[in-house]
Amino acid sequence: MHPGLKDGNMSTLKLSFKVNGKLTSLAVAPNALLVDVLREDLGLTGTKAGCREGECGACTVLLDGEPVNSCLLPAMKAAGREVTTIEGLVQEDGTLHALQQSFTDQGASQCGFCTPAMILNAKALLDKAPHPDEGQIRQALSGVLCRCTGYRKIVQAVQNIAQGK
């Protein structure tokens, strides 16, 4: 462990960024990763930490609209930028985002560990190409592993939105 870390005297950095539309400022350790800042400092536990090595994709968030692995992202990389997590998709009154509703309707979520990442990757795709074909959908979801569903229903849930169903 870095000598400064344990003693708590390692100087912290100030991180200011937008999280789900809200300007947020907090002190973070220089070696903090975005996934931990989101989950532990900001309580946004919808973002999951799985492998912490960029393999599983469960930690996906949108950084200025692009999906990235938050386990590979030093928190300071988010400074001055906009981060969207799964919590940011729900409307103020609690209404689910169309993708969230579609996943629910299709039974596309079983244990749910991969679901936030699947939905955020799908959202990034639909924001760019509102009517993707199945190949584009599978490509967009290829960076998230699901160990429960077999993917079929996840793809279907996104397709239903893409086809305006």
């Binding site: 960029g54 994709g57 996906t60 950084l63 692009e66 999906p67 990235v68 692995n69 590979l72 992202l73 990757n121 490509q139 967009a140 290829s142 960076g143 998230v144």
Partner: peptide, 9 residues
């Protein structure tokens, strides 16, 4: 390379 998220970074 990797995955879409990795390619973005």
């Amino acid at each position: 390379v990797g995955s879409p998220q990795i390619r973005n970074l």
